[in-house]
Write a protein that binds this DNA or RNA. Structure first.
Lengths: 359, 359
DNA sequence: CTGAAAGCGCTAACAA
DNA sequence: TTGTTAGCGCTTTCAG
């Protein structure tokens, strides 16, 4: 008694099924299936008839049915802490490139910086709706009493590692890159530093801070003499750090911001207060987002190969899916991009390098 | 003879099915299903046993099976021209907010500005893998001889309309907003204008250009006297337009860029060439992306309520899915944000307003 | 080379 | 209130 119409009130047009095609081509559904999956197994005549029927009916295989049979979804879940963050966009593009090329679809799991949102994606994974997971959240999603890692699905983290976890990761060497930042600033004669932090529990933050401090220490500078501002990876953190910076009597001459967004927020604020960059103050960011080049002056920064990170992460998963092995970690190079926001320390403030002590 | 192991070589741990739960709770699978879907239909005793069994087995319903039965996917496809474009990130967040709240998942269809990529998503829709589609590409995807609109799935466009199509759209009034830009610039005494275009076939571009020209015309200025640069919505277009602008002998004093990215590229380039903004030159963008506020000076622009657009678009689809009606169009307000990049026209170049002719 | 038939895991009638 | 049963659309043995 039920009327044949879609839930949307449009005329029925029930999508063609494999049986419609089979009937029309006067073969069995098995032959249709074979024609589409392994054409060589089918006679030319049958194949031709099937193909014609497919065209005539506009048949597209139903994915739910196929997945139910094949016990796979041809989908990868990408968990991102906040989809509005400009940094992730290009990474996503890299992931998408690689995934699409291998026939996988991409489901975005946006946490919007809220842990409550994790549960939903944990369920998605346990429900078998995705074949693999790429994590950009720096944190293993959990919810409803389950950890996502327990679902037995290949997983990898990208852009960031997860503390105390055995998950493979695809990322740059935050520590080494940050040491290079310190060296660069030191070579310009800076001796008084500021560091604007990301979230304290984020492993990128941990690596960057450690690298920067190590770089200072290597030059005989006490890392604890630097000024540290807490924060997160956002423009607002840069703004607030700048306000605090401006209130300082003895200001650093060089600032390392743990992300470009922080750096850009900082620059904008101190510039408006009348400071000149890089004459009065040098500043370095991290990430190499597109806009870092378009602020004035352009921001010296560490370039993360975001597209490559995305591709490599996706590839690691695809390979794991194909050969049944665990995904492999990859560490990528992150070069320092020298641009307009760094220059020699102001002469007046430049301390004479300490003479090397006898021991 | 086949070994029970996942394709990934990990120990089998076949996910629990509804039958495992039923067996353990000593009820039928139907009762398990009911317990999860309509708990009130089940006796307290049975429900308790089922719930316990669910917990014990770690059961999560298989989505492919459920979708196969229910003939719906609980997924919405969002087609975006280029996922790396900062503009879309916040729109996606709005879409995601609304979709997640209604239990839908989101599949990203990134075209990466390549038409070839459309076919894949057309198939996805015809394969019943999504229940609805949100289009940000300004173009109806097609491929394999099919138009996506023919799949009989609720669709809407957001941020942009599609020429000659009946698809409902959720967007701002490009034309009206751009007229406001012209009025603003005119009120500052500018009389010589430049306009940097997006892609000529893009309906946002069409609307913005028309609005701007209408605004000029309304003030008795011949729109054809303005300088027009072709391009796309990108930083590079701004840079190239700026180079062309700098080579001009008789330069406009006010520039309207069809997007913030264009405006930012332009600003950076002319600033480096020594021009002062807004003293020498006023510039207005369109979109209100986050970074438009952090360039120096901050960019006067039209703010698109991106998060709201995303939400409204998703909502239109969800409503359509629920009540079986076609999605409804929505036109949102887009205010002009007065910031630092616009000021009175340089006195020397400011033309005396023409005296109104007698006819 | 081809067809018949058995499910994949779930839900919705229909009976009881 | 509960169980039985019949598929959703597809792939894949197993025979022929």
């Amino acid at each position: 008694m039920k009327k044949a119409r879609t839930s949307n009130g449009r005329p029925a047009r029930r999508p063609a099924t494999i049986r419609d095609v089979a009937k029309r081509a006067r073969v069995s559904t098995a032959t249709v299936s074979r024609t589409l999956a392994v054409p060589d197994l089918v006679s030319d005549a049958a194949r031709a008839r099937v193909l014609a029927a497919v065209k005539a009916t506009g048949y597209t295989p139903n994915v739910a049915a196929r997945n139910l049979r094949a016990r796979r979804a041809m989908m990868v879940l990408v968990v991102v802490p906040n989809i509005a963050n400009a940094f992730f966009a290009e990474v996503l593009r890299g992931i998408d490139d690689e995934l699409v090329a291998s026939g996988y679809g991409i489901i975005i799991g946006n946490l919007d910086n809220k842990v409550e949102r994790e549960a939903r994606y944990v369920d998605l994974v346990f429900a078998g709706q995705v074949d693999a997971v790429l994590l950009m959240s720096g944190h293993i999603p959990s919810g409803n009493g389950k950890l996502m890692t327990e679902a037995g699905v290949p997983m990898a983290t990208i852009c960031v590692a997860i503390a105390d976890s055995a998950l493979p990761s695809v990322m740059v060497d935050d520590r080494a890159a940050s040491e290079a930042v310190a060296e660069h600033l030191l070579s310009l004669g800076h001796r008084r530093f500021g560091y604007i932090s990301g979230p304290a529990d984020n492993q990128n933050e941990v690596g960057r801070r450690a690298g920067f401090r190590a770089g200072l220490a290597a030059a005989g500078i006490d890392p604890d003499r630097a000024v540290y501002w807490p924060g997160e990876f956002s423009l607002g953190t840069g703004v607030r750090a700048a306000e605090s910076f401006l209130a300082l009597s003895d200001r650093p001459t060089a600032i390392f911001a743990a992300s470009d967004t922080i750096g850009i927020g900082f620059m904008k604020t101190v510039t408006e207060a009348g400071l000149r960059i890089p004459e009065d103050l040098s500043i370095v960011g991290f990430d190499g987002i597109e806009f870092s080049e378009f602020v004035t002056p352009s921001l010296t920064t560490i370039r993360q190969p975001r597209h490559d990170i995305g591709r490599a992460g996706a590839r690691a998963l695809i390979d794991a899916l194909a050969d049944g092995a665990a995904p492999k970690s990859v560490l990528l190079e992150a070069p320092l991009l020298l641009r307009g926001s760094t220059a020699r320390a102001p002469a007046a403030l430049r301390e004479r390098p300490k003479v090397r002590r006898s021991r």
